[in-house]
């Protein structure tokens, strides 16, 4: 049986298109997205407010640069294992939360660094002028710094989310969940007869990652304030 035949026959197995049965591909897509989105949202709630406030006061710049380096050095596989180990020791169900929290931890560095940088690179003259005309510090943050930093913050969210989508699959190695990683890991375990599952999972997760990247890129572009968009358009035209 060729690999393609294996793929087709795997896709034709019972419950493969079910949203509710664990064998279903749609079920795994939903699971994958639940972990990814929850992980990202938690990370956004933690990292973004902290970063923009610190950046506004020009405090903790070392954190911004150290965060990404630390984030890179800690292997995501190790991160998943550690959270899983902690959950299993604490007798918590290991399917959803350990993986999700590991994804939050994974997303913190790029979100923090980008949010910090995004606020930091806002033209000081713009901030000075807004202070000079009587904006309170909170108003400067909300009306000037955050809108201008939004594209950079969203770029951080994009990097974080694509990384999460890719890494959730690895979670399948250690837990029952792991979204689209499930068929890949289970397929590997079956050896040569499992290639259909491996390939289906691989295609689906690659597609999901690229789709997330594309969606966030669109979002990022839309978030560029109109005045800046025109500025960069003229800047490009000048070259």
């Amino acid at each position: 049986m060729s690999i393609f035949d294996q793929l087709v026959s795997w896709l034709r197995e019972p419950n493969r298109w079910s949203f509710s049965h664990p064998d279903g591909l749609p079920y795994r897509v939903i699971e994958h997205l639940q972990v990814s989105v929850t992980g990202l949202v938690l990370a956004v709630l933690i990292a973004v407010p902290l970063a923009v406030v610190l950046a506004h006061h020009r405090k903790g710049a070392f954190l911004a640069s150290a965060a990404v380096n630390i984030g890179r050095a800690i292997p995501s596989f190790g991160l998943i294992i550690i959270f899983w180990l902690a959950a299993s020791r604490a007798n918590i169900d290991t399917t959803f939360w350990p993986l999700t929290l590991a994804m939050t931890a994974l997303a913190l560095p790029p979100l923090f660094t980008n949010s910090y940088t995004g606020v930091q690179i806002v033209d000081p003259a713009t901030v000075e002028a807004s202070r000079g005309v009587g904006f309170t510090e909170m108003q400067i943050l909300r009306r000037v710094e955050i809108p201008l930093a939004l594209p950079v913050i969203l770029a951080g969210a994009r990097i974080a989310f694509v990384q999460i989508v890719a890494t959730v699959a690895i979670g399948a190695i250690v837990s029952d969940g792991g979204g689209l990683g499930r068929p890949i890991v289970d397929g590997f375990a079956q050896g040569a007869t499992g290639y259909g599952a491996v390939l289906a999972g691989g295609i689906a997760v690659a597609f999901l990652a690229l789709l997330s990247e594309a969606l966030f890129t669109v979002l990022e572009r839309a978030a560029v304030p109109a005045g800046i968009r025109r500025m960069s358009a003229t800047a490009i035209a000048r070259r």
Binding site: A166, A169, A172, G187, F188, V198, V205, A206, A209
Partner: peptide
Amino acid sequence: AIPALAAFAF
């Protein structure tokens, strides 16, 4: 952007 696990799968 392609997840490592997907790349291995291919």
